[in-house]
Amino acid sequence: MDNLETRLVKLALKGDQRAFAEIVDLYKDRIFHLAYRMLSNRHEAEDVVQETFLRVYRNLDRYDPGQKFSTWIYRIGTNLSIDRLRKRKPTYSLDAEIGDQDGADGYALIPGDNRTPETEYMISETRTTIHEAIDGLPPKYKTVMILRYLQELSLQEISDVLDMPVTTIKTRVHRGREFLRKKLESQQH
């Protein structure tokens, strides 16, 4: 039995545009969040989303149904994001001002359900700390942390997406976790 993605790919290959639009709908948010976390820039993230789907479309006939579709599309989206990160000025660092933070997108202005302003503030504080900390990580750690915690991929899936051994992924997750732990501790003190 084919899964949904494999069926949609088959239809799209036959020229069914609606099937491809379906694929876009299924993955656009995930790829956008991945790219947005990687690049901290809405405009660039949307560019990555567009380019990802363009590549998916062009290489649809090369998609191997033996592989998970999500792994394939994540690989494309991740590589495009990493490429953009690398092309940035080398002066970009943890201390550099981060252009497009959550607050700027109105995140802080939208209250959650049943939350007091205090808890809301604390949650957003922690979240900001974590996002900033992940932003400051070198790309190779950043990618792994985003795939693990934002996209909630398993270590095996991350290893498939990045085409690296699971042991390497584990080491990076461990280091990233330690780094985040220290960041959160310093915030609390």
Binding site: V24, F32, Y107, I130, M145
Partner: peptide, 24 residues
């Protein structure tokens, strides 16, 4: 826990609504 929680779907930043049309 916080890593998972901080990145949960409550994420306010969303991709543009017309993204699918734009891509198509």
């Amino acid at each position: 826990m916080m890593l998972f929680a901080a990145n949960r779907k409550s994420e306010s930043v969303a991709v543009s609504e017309d993204m699918t049309d734009r891509i198509m």
